[in-house]
């Protein structure tokens, strides 16, 4: 797991999830940049509320997708960490 289960990811001020009505789909909008989300990316981001920790998010996704927690923790942990590197998410340790 690239994130600790007790870590709490959240969206910093100025970043929001928005529907892209022009092309369909959802984007994460940050100042001067945007991230287009695929279905799995949207599933991860939509579970980030600044309160739930990473372990709870992974458990929820595992139940929804019927996939092993280890696989989901690895993939979503990398995804969240990559967004945190770009300052589009914050990780509260």
């Amino acid at each position: 797991m690239s994130l600790a289960a007790a870590s709490v990811p959240r969206m910093p001020r100025g970043v929001r999830l928005q529907e892209d009505r022009v092309r369909g789909g959802w984007v994460l909008l940050a100042p001067e940049r945007a991230i287009a989300l695929d279905a799995v990316g949207l599933a991860i981001i939509s579970r980030i509320d600044g309160a739930r920790d990473f372990g709870a998010i992974v458990a929820d996704l595992s139940e929804t997708y019927g996939a092993p927690e280890a696989e989901i923790a690895r993939d979503s942990g990398e995804f969240i960490a990559a967004l945190a590197e770009r300052r589009i998410l914050e990780i509260m340790v």
Binding site: V27, A34, I35, A36, D38, V40, G41, Y65
Partner: peptide, 13 residues
């Protein structure tokens, strides 16, 4: 819907 590795795609705004 199956789990697939999420793709991070930056788009111009």
């Amino acid at each position: 819907m199956a789990w697939t590795k999420p793709i991070l795609r930056e788009v111009a705004c």
